[in-house]
Computed example of a mutant assay.
Amino acid sequence: MDRMKVAIHHRKGSFSDRWIEYLQEKNIPYVLLNAFDNDIIKQIKDHKATHFMWHFNQNYFEDMLHAKNLFRSVNQIGIKTYPNEESYWHFDDKVAQKYLLEALEVPLVKADVFYHQKEAEKYIEKTSFPKVFKLKGGAGSINVKLVKTKQEAKKLVNKAFNGGFAAFDSWAVFTDTIERFWRQKTRHNFLRILKWGFKGIFVDKQYKVFPKQRNYVYFQEFIPGLKYDIRLIVIGAKCYYLKRNTRDNDFRASGSGMLEFAPGQFNLEAVDIAFKAARKLNMVSVAYDFIFDSEDKPLMVEISYGFQPVVYDRCLGYYDADLNWHEAKVNLEYEIVHSFLNDF
């Protein structure tokens, strides 16, 4: 690592907090740069950086507008990036992930996508309900709806090919936060209600600058009886585990805040699928959401290179590729930067 130098776009509260700690501990040269500077390419060159890292976030419009173009340009001059192109091209795009996972032939929840209203309407007449309607982007199940009838589906299709959908449903965030408060009833969550109610609905223009989602519809098969899903994160030779329970009288687990970290009884084939898919995907870090059908078969729902920082500190260990469990202290940000700098 003598000739290595890492350039980092730092945002407090992101992966980069601990990336910096890791580099300092290992005495690896690094420099903090602003990815949005007009001369960022020149700065990277002038600092003779060999690696460039940026934990860009789907909730920031400027990130989604700029990051992929910058990463691709930096790659052109031989600088390695986190995330790499295999990781970022489908980030926060459930439609892109559908095609990718179908190409890799991993077991996944069947999804149907249509780009013309007439084709979508023909599909509605032939298919069965309920179905799960999703927009391309959005975390925490915010842009996810259960469609129970043909009539509901027709309304969604009509809106998709006419007015379109807001990319961020601030009201859904607000109501979800209220639901979580009543379930947990803590001062912390009460303050979150005030924060999201004020910020998400009345003040924050950040989410309102995203363009409307229109001219496509995405319907996913509904798997009945779900009580939870599992999040598996593969980084290098380790697979980390988290269980997310569904909300009361709801099929959604992502964003519920009802988490379990001890590895319970579940079909370990999911871990094997996660490792095998990671090798094909060539991603430094990949987070999978899995559900299980009535026969306990694991089905992949979606993937992401990134995830919520700090939450996973509560994980109790990891699985190896032979599906053995190892108790260990978990620091996923350290694992990411270590794997990245060592060519994972």
Rank of each mutant, 00 (worst) to 15 (best):
S170K: 06
W19E: 01
T186Y: 09
A237S: 15
F71V: 13
G236C: 05
S254W: 01
I79G: 09
K159Y: 03
V113R: 05
K94P: 04
K155I: 12
S256T: 04
Q308W: 12
Q117C: 10
E102Q: 12
K205F: 14
D293S: 00
L101R: 04
W196Y: 15
M258H: 06
A35N: 09
T127M: 09
T175M: 05
K329F: 09
P263R: 07
G140A: 07
K148C: 14
M300W: 07
H9M: 08
I273V: 15
Y88D: 03
R18A: 06
V113G: 05
K118G: 14
K155P: 06
H116L: 15
N38Y: 07
G264E: 08
N249H: 03
D248H: 04
E102F: 04
L33Q: 15
E119Y: 10
A167S: 10
K42W: 05
H9T: 03
H188T: 00
V31A: 10
P211M: 09
D37Q: 11
H188P: 04
T149A: 07
D37K: 13
E221H: 12
N27R: 04
K80D: 11
L194Y: 08
Y305C: 14
V157K: 10
F344L: 08
Y22H: 03
V157D: 08
T246V: 15
N69P: 07
A237D: 05
M300E: 07
W19L: 14
M258D: 00
Q97A: 09
L332S: 00
V301M: 12
Y115Q: 13
I40E: 15
S294Q: 07
I28F: 10
T177V: 13
R214C: 13
Q206D: 00
H326T: 01
N245H: 01
Y228M: 00
F91E: 02
K205W: 08
L156W: 08
N249E: 03
T246F: 05
L135D: 15
K48C: 06
Y228V: 01
T186A: 11
W171A: 11
E102Y: 00
E86V: 01
R180A: 00
D93C: 10
M1F: 05
Y22E: 14
D289I: 09
Y123I: 06
W325D: 00
E152V: 07
R231E: 09
Y60W: 12
C315T: 13
K110F: 04
A153S: 01
N143V: 02
I336P: 01
G225C: 01
E121M: 14
K185R: 15
I178N: 00
H55N: 04
L23A: 14
C315Q: 14
A139P: 10
A328V: 12
S304W: 10
F168L: 11
G13Q: 03
S14H: 03
R247Q: 11
T127A: 02
E327W: 06
K205N: 12
V144M: 03
M4C: 06
M1G: 15
D320F: 04
E333P: 05
D92V: 11
Y60H: 05
A321R: 08
D250A: 05
F344V: 01
N267F: 11
